[in-house]
């Protein structure tokens, strides 16, 4: 099954993916990336590969395949 993969180097910490994930499979972390933004983490076990995170993300963090 397709799963969402996150390139958190691109993340700007907006949390839109966290708010929109229908399975609550994305968690907001306090860990920061190189740019200093707090990133997220995908729980692959909960992910259903629906693509919503890809659609709402303004920064092209997600690939679903």
């Amino acid at each position: 099954m397709a799963k969402a993969k996150a390139n958190t180097d691109l993340c700007k910490g907006c949390r839109l993916c966290v708010a929109n994930c229908p399975k609550k499979a994305i968690t907001a972390l306090e860990v920061v990336n190189k740019k200093g933004y707090e990133i997220i983490e995908v729980n692959e076990e909960l992910c259903i590969g629906c693509g919503i995170c890809y659609k709402v993300c303004p920064d092209y963090v997600f690939t679903v395949e």
Partner: peptide, 25 residues
């Protein structure tokens, strides 16, 4: 299942503030 991958015409990061809609557009 459909595959979702950044379109190849986007070659650089979006220069906008976090959560801005311009990147989605």
């Amino acid at each position: 299942m459909p595959v979702y991958r950044k379109p190849e015409s986007i070659i650089n990061t979006a220069g906008y503030c976090g959560g801005c809609g311009h990147g989605v557009i």
